[in-house]
Design a protein around this nucleic acid. Structure first.
Length: 680
DNA sequence: GAAATCATACTTTTT
DNA sequence: GTATGATTTC
């Protein structure tokens, strides 16, 4: 147990960490470089606070993912004592806002029974209201796609920049459509309010409205003595405003971040927040610069990558560990050879006694790992993949969720609109009319069937839908039974695009997830706020003794660390992504991505560069093109690494050391092609 | 008004 | 390599 006043028992803290953990004089900014013990310090601070009498329910911990919040709180409990953190508010900005708005939303005009829209729903609703607006005027010109509508609006909300500026900077090809966009956004906003729908951005802007409200604000914000924010460099203008309002109401703010690791600019995140924090919150600054994670050799590579940044406010990382191996820069002929090279090195490390779970392969985008996944499967190397998941975007998954939403909230016309179109003979036109008839019929589909809106040949199926929805709407049934009613109705529609078996398996897994939740309403909200982050989340209960490799996008690897890290596809065009090379600010973010990737490694770092890789940009290009290593791997960075040319572009071996004899590779490639054909 | 066909703008990272 | 929307056909 942790005695009040006995901070000496905070274990293993360095002086600088202890200073940050025990700071008691107002708001605090902890500038924590990669591997400097940020998690340790933050959880020690949590333990320190409760040990000094702050009631846990008056502490709010804001992190970037649910995983991070859970880990921080459980580590704090190890020191503070079992259950001493129970009652603390922990989670993402969005999840915490959801909780606050369900409780206090009425005071800012929000019905607490709102339905959450995910990114796909938001785009669908925007497309829907745009169609309604322009149904008489025939647009000759091609209009912006719906994801673009959503992206631009989201950027406006999160960065507080005017639409014209956002369009000019990020979507120049549709700057001339600004007026149409504005009209669409107006209708979208009105529709959201009318139907009690909230999107991700609403969670932030309504939280801000709530705490800035002269009456409700002090009451809500006054519930908290301490707000601790992790990954502050990735917060946006709106989130900083929320914290400022919380601070005005008397909360002490502790922010932790590192401007070298800001990688969420695409979501409106801005390093201005961390730079402005000391002045805005009248805060002291403690810097953690001693890297306890990585060997000096890895720290040197990281420092040299960061040294070339256009804007840098950090001191270099100082390595405190003993010397280790120099990082490797592995050049492979092409993607196949890169994948093989990674596998060979993984297995070789396992033979040296480093289990797979202490190794990771990182990449810029999800599909960069496609080939490697095939190669790993062929070689029976188990892995989980984080990030880049499209599970919730698959049509059949969205259909099932829409069906659930209709059951939960019969006034969710967006979901109705989607579900109805699964029915043979029902397209956008009929669906729209049924939806408006539903409005008049108080949400009862059964009554609409008899009203003549539904064409005769579809009447039976619509009636079946009405029955299924009625069953799923029965709150007395278990969540599993309710979702099964939806699944049963959807089942005949799963073969329309082939591969029905895989789709059924997906839906079964979803039902399994749902049955662990007390009610369907909660399940839908949780799924939106905390979507499955890894293939492991979808694979059923994990086997604890399994030794499994981690594959991850760099974004999802934030906060993680492994003994051995392989970074693949470190070629120009992949990292930096050639979608980001046009704008200097985006390019700088790509540099920070590389920095984040290399600083995940404790002992060994292998950076892989395929010289030839697929270009997905246009089909006139040769299917492959010859690439170059990432422009961020400048000569001084490479000087700090050992260059290994494992295979020449023509596939011949450079020497005998990197590929073992045995001739497995050609067979593996053939197998891999077959596996790809079969589908995983 | 729904299904089928065609053309072309866009392709990432996540709550 | 794809998916959306515009266009044509039924």
């Amino acid at each position: 147990m942790f005695d009040p006043g006995d901070d000496a028992r905070l274990p293993d803290l360095t002086d600088e960490q202890r200073l940050a953990a025990t700071h008691d004089a107002g708001s605090l900014l902890i500038v924590a470089g990669a591997g400097t013990g940020k998690t340790t310090t933050l959880s020690a601070r949590l333990a320190h606070l409760v040990a000094h009498g702050v009631p846990p329910e008056r502490i709010m911990l804001l992190t970037f993912s649910r995983r991070a919040a859970t880990e921080l709180l459980s580590r704090a409990e190890q020191w503070a004592g079992h259950d001493r953190l129970r009652g603390a508010w922990g989670g993402t900005f969005h999840a915490v806002s959801n909780r606050l708005l369900r409780r206090y939303g009425r005071s800012v005009g929000i019905d607490p029974d709102f339905t959450l829209l995910d990114a796909g729903d938001q785009a669908d609703l925007l497309a829907l209201v745009r169609d309604e607006l322009s149904c008489d005027s025939t647009p000759q010109r091609r209009r912006a796609r719906k994801e673009l509508l959503a992206g631009a609006l989201s950027r406006v909300v999160n960065t507080r920049q005017p639409l014209d500026v956002v369009l000019r900077q990020h979507y120049p090809w549709c700057a001339d459509q600004a007026d149409e966009l504005r009209a669409t956004y107006g209708a979208y906003i009105a529709r959201k309010r009318e139907r009690h729908l909230l999107d991700y951005d609403d969670l932030l802007s309504l939280w801000r409205a709530l705490v800035q409200d002269p009456e409700a604000g002090p009451l809500v914000a006054g519930r908290f003595d301490h707000v601790l924010v992790d990954e502050y460099q990735d917060t946006n203008a709106l989130q900083a405003d929320v914290l400022a309002a919380m601070s005005d109401a008397g909360a002490t703010i502790t922010a932790v971040g590192d401007d070298a690791q800001a990688i969420y600019g695409f979501r409106g995140g801005t390093v201005r927040n961390i730079l402005d924090f000391p002045a805005r919150f009248d805060a002291e600054v403690v810097a953690l610069t001693r890297s306890h994670r990585s060997t000096p050799e890895i720290v040197t590579v990281a420092n040299r990558i960061w040294a070339a940044a256009a804007e840098r406010h950090d001191k270099d990382l100082v390595a405190v560990r003993a010397a280790g191996a120099r990082p490797h820069l592995v050049t492979a002929g092409d993607e196949h050879l890169e994948a093989r090279g990674v596998c060979e090195r993984l297995l070789e490390s396992v033979e040296r006694g480093i289990p797979l779970r202490r190794q990771a392969v990182l990449f810029r985008t999800g599909h960069h790992a496609d080939l490697l996944e095939v190669e790993l499967t062929v070689r029976r190397i188990p892995f989980v993949k984080f990030g880049g998941l499209k599970f919730l975007e698959a049509a059949h998954v969205k259909d099932l969720l829409a069906l659930c939403r209709v059951a939960v909230n019969p006034r969710d016309d967006l979901a109705w609109f989607r579900v109805l179109q699964r029915i043979d003979g029902v397209g956008p036109g009929i669906a729209r009319r049924v939806v408006s008839a539903l409005d008049a019929a108080d949400g009862s589909l059964a009554r609409v069937v008899g009203s003549g809106v539904v064409p005769p040949r579809s009447a039976d199926e619509v009636a079946g839908l009405a029955t299924a929805v009625a069953t799923a709407a029965d709150a007395d049934l278990a969540t599993g039974e309710r979702i099964d009613a939806c699944r049963a109705w959807l089942d005949p529609h799963l073969d329309r695009f082939g591969d029905g078996a895989a789709r059924r398996a997906d839906l079964a897994r979803l039902a399994e997830l749902a049955s662990g939740t007390p009610d369907l309403e909660t399940f839908l909200t949780e799924l939106t706020l905390d979507p499955p982050a890894s293939t492991g989340d979808l694979a059923g209960p994990p086997h604890l003794d399994d030794d499994v490799l981690t594959l991850s996008t760099i974004h999802s690897a934030k906060g993680g660390e492994w003994d051995i890290v392989h970074l693949i596809h470190a070629a120009d065009g992949n990292l930096p992504s050639d979608l980001s090379t046009g704008d200097p600010e985006q390019l700088e973010e790509e540099r920070r991505l590389l920095y984040v990737a290399v600083t995940r490694a404790r002992d060994e770092l292998h950076v892989h560069v395929p010289l030839r890789f697929h270009h997905h940009r246009n089909r006139l290009d040769d299917a492959h093109s010859t690439g170059q290593r990432s422009r961020f791997l400048t000569p001084d960075v490479v000087d700090a690494m050992d260059e290994v040319v494992s295979v020449r572009p023509d596939g011949s071996l450079d020497d005998g050391t990197d590929l073992r004899p045995g001739g497995r590779s050609a067979a593996a490639t053939a197998d891999a092609e077959l596996v790809a054909l079969l589908g995983r």
